[in-house]
Simulated scan of single mutants.
Amino acid sequence: MEPPLQMPFGYPTRVLYECKAYEGLTSLSIVRNALGLRLDINEFEIVTKSSLSKRKNNSRSEYAIEQRDRYIYQVGIASIYGFTKPAVEFAANNKIPLLSLQWILDDSHLGMLKQLNQEYIDQLDRNYLNNLFSFLTNSTPNQYYRDNFRYLFDAVYVEWVSNFLCTFEDNLKSLYVGLLESGDMIFLKAKDNNYHAYMSNTVHTSVLKARIHYQINSLGKWELDIIRDNETISLAKFDFFVPDTIMKRWKESNFSRLEATAIKQSYFARIFIYNHSENTNSPVTIVNVDSNWLANLIRTEQRW
């Protein structure tokens, strides 16, 4: 994947994800291997005899710049379930992005994955498998697959794969990626269609503010409420799971209200939300925490 925004005056960046389908948590050794792969592809260059011979010619009429694309590569790990504590700590220390379907999908949807095994694959029609393979491995599927993949798969097999893809597609439509200034990534599940409609506009002149809440009966699941500056009417609401590193800090304070407010102030002061692909003029929306609301919250909690 290539990030929608690139830093100027440097090589563009790309992100490679290793995808793991283990039944349990992904271990430290897998994350260590990702670090080694990142070093390999960024630090070493394959030099051929042909390229060396061209460099011997000192009377070149053209600039001595190789016509090729160069990238800075990041390597991450994606898994069905989560990661062990050592794996999370190692990834945080070495800036290796981690992604788990457990952070996006509910347990019932994850349970569908256990139905996928070799016995199930062997009994599927070969043409069906070829179509599925073409769709899943094509980073830019043509319009036919975009519009008709549900019909294509359901017409052949109303089976596990088509059901899973349809459910997953529905989840993706309401899912947005948020990036914190700490480098942590959160997945924002829209609770309605308001935000999607708002971001389809090409021009946004208002400043967006965020108010963040947690629930006593589900401490790891927080709500992000987006409003316009100097207004109180909600534009959209999202649910998201707090990253493990942030939850660890909150847990150490015995989940105190005051510490939760400090976390909101330090980690969620600014959130960068990626807007899918419908708005190429504004691929990222920046949402700042509502400082007035937060200050009032601090005063209130200090009186407790």
Score class of each variant (00 low, 15 high):
Glu278Lys: 09
Leu188Val: 09
Leu180Pro: 05
Gln115Phe: 12
Ala269Asn: 15
Ser50Glu: 10
Glu181Val: 08
Tyr195Ser: 07
Glu259Leu: 09
Trp293Phe: 12
Thr26Ile: 14
Trp250Phe: 11
Met185Asn: 07
Leu175Asn: 02
Asn171Tyr: 06
Val88Gly: 00
Asn138Met: 06
Gln102Phe: 12
Arg270Gly: 02
Arg60Thr: 10
Val75Asn: 07
Thr84Glu: 11
Tyr144Gln: 13
Ser206Phe: 05
Asn94Gln: 08
Ser266Arg: 09
Val289Leu: 14
Leu113Asn: 05
His213Asp: 08
Asp225Phe: 02
Val177Arg: 14
Phe133Tyr: 14
Gln74Met: 09
His204Ala: 03
Val88Cys: 05
Arg60Ile: 08
Ala87Asp: 06
Gln115Ala: 11
Arg60Lys: 14
Phe153Met: 14
Ser256Cys: 07
Ser256Trp: 03
Ser200Cys: 12
Ala260Ser: 13
Lys209Thr: 03
Lys237Glu: 15
Glu278Gly: 07
Leu294His: 06
Ile286Thr: 13
Met199Thr: 13
Lys221Met: 13
Glu223Ser: 12
Ser53Gln: 12
Val161Ile: 15
Arg257Cys: 04
Gln265Cys: 01
Tyr11Ser: 11
Asp122Ala: 13
Thr137Phe: 05
Ala210Pro: 03
Asn131Phe: 04
Leu294Val: 00
Gly76Met: 05
Thr261His: 01
Tyr176Gly: 00
Leu98Gly: 10
Tyr145Pro: 08
Ala197Lys: 15
Leu35Gly: 01
Glu119Asn: 13
Tyr144Cys: 09
Leu28Met: 07
Arg257Phe: 03
Ala91Val: 15
Asp170Leu: 01
Thr280Gln: 07
Asn148Met: 08
Gln123Phe: 11
Ser282Ala: 05
Leu25Arg: 10
Val15Pro: 00
Ser253Lys: 03
Val75Ala: 04
Ile72Ser: 11
Tyr176Asp: 00
Glu252His: 02
Ala64Asp: 14
Arg70His: 08
Phe44Ala: 05
Arg38Glu: 15
Ser108Ala: 10
Thr245Gln: 07
Cys19Ile: 15
Ile96Lys: 03
His204Ile: 03
Phe168Asp: 00
Leu175Asp: 00
Val15Glu: 12
Glu159Pro: 00
Asn254Phe: 06
Glu252Val: 01
Ser50Asn: 09
Gln115Ser: 14
Leu25Asn: 11
Asn296Phe: 02
Leu165Lys: 07
Leu5Glu: 14
Leu129Asn: 08
Gly220Val: 03
Gln102Asn: 15
Thr205Cys: 06
Lys209Val: 00
Thr261Asn: 09
Asp107Met: 09
Ser291Arg: 10
Thr84Tyr: 04
Ser218Ala: 15
Ile77Ala: 10
Tyr274Lys: 14
Thr137Cys: 09
Thr140Trp: 03
Arg270Gln: 13
Ser51Arg: 14
Asn58Leu: 12
Ala260Asp: 02
Ser182His: 10
Glu66Phe: 06
His276Gln: 15
Lys191Ser: 13
Tyr176Val: 01
Asn130Ile: 14
Ala260Gly: 11
Leu152Pro: 04
